[in-house]
């Protein structure tokens, strides 16, 4: 497991040194965190708005930032052929993949939390009644969100390592459209009558676990040969 943390630490360090990607991630986190919160500011039921926004945005935003970072960590390293040297190191391919997932999922989760905290702060401005997230939302933020983000990042990373460069660009565009579309779905969440409950959180936990299992199973079929022969 030591290799996982070494790879993960290096990926985080490299992501933090990439000002362009970091700026994009912060911009999206701010845009999709702060603006919906400002829109929900005058809601009749601020507690429901708060829970709904956090429930939805923490997932979609985390997945989107994870997608942005994955491009730097998986796709770019493959495109620049740097990964070939890494595959010669005494770390298994599975550990390398897991380290990269950790390196991407951690900062994505942190940014997702930052956006959620921003929503809480905005909806708790001094002129308004005090609102706090429900226990289900807290569970969601602490357990479901990191698991979901890690599963999505793991799956994106697996696909990027598996496919050739051209196929990767096409798939990346599709993923971008799906996640970006999901981010815009926040309007529907704010308009609707949904009240997030333990059932919703439990369902998402189940989905995240299934996604994690699917990703873990898929990675077994990834090989060094597959990566090396799809580099160029």
């Amino acid at each position: 497991m030591r290799g996982v943390f070494v790879v993960g630490r290096k990926e985080m360090r490299e992501l933090l040194s990439n000002k362009g990607t970091l700026f994009s991630a912060l911009l999206f986190a701010s845009f999709f965190g702060i603006f919906p919160a400002l829109s929900a500011y005058n809601s009749d039921n601020p507690a429901v708005s708060l829970n709904n926004l956090i429930f939805y945005l923490s997932l979609t935003l985390g997945a989107f930032i994870g997608y942005l970072f994955s491009g730097q960590v998986f796709f770019r390293e493959k495109q620049e052929k740097v990964i070939e040297t890494l595959l010669c190191a005494p770390v298994s391919l599975r550990m390398v993949w897991l380290g990269k997932v950790l390196g991407v999922a951690m900062p994505s989760y942190v940014l997702s939390i930052v956006a959620s905290v921003s929503i809480i702060l905005i909806l708790n401005s001094p002129s308004r009644a005090h609102v706090v997230p429900s226990a289900a939302i807290m569970f969601h933020l602490l357990i479901v969100v990191p698991l979901f983000i890690a599963s999505v990042v793991g799956l994106i990373g697996f696909v990027q390592l598996l496919l050739g460069m051209r196929e990767n660009r096409i798939v990346s565009l599709l993923i971008f459209m799906v996640i970006f579309g999901a981010l815009y779905g926040v309007r529907g969440i704010m308009r609707g009558d949904l009240v997030v409950s333990w059932v919703h959180v439990g369902t998402l936990l189940l989905v995240s676990l299934l996604l994690a299992a699917l990703t873990g199973y898929s990675v077994r079929h990834l090989s060094k040969e597959k990566i090396v022969t799809t580099i160029s």
Partner: peptide, 26 residues
């Protein structure tokens, strides 16, 4: 190994590149 591609991380410093592999090789 030194493969056709240098296998270096361009956004990291020279020191960090060596440290990364020093950690991987324990």
């Amino acid at each position: 190994v030194v493969l056709e591609n240098d296998g270096l991380y361009e956004r990291l410093t020279a020191y960090d590149n060596l440290e990364y592999y020093a950690q991987l090789y324990d």
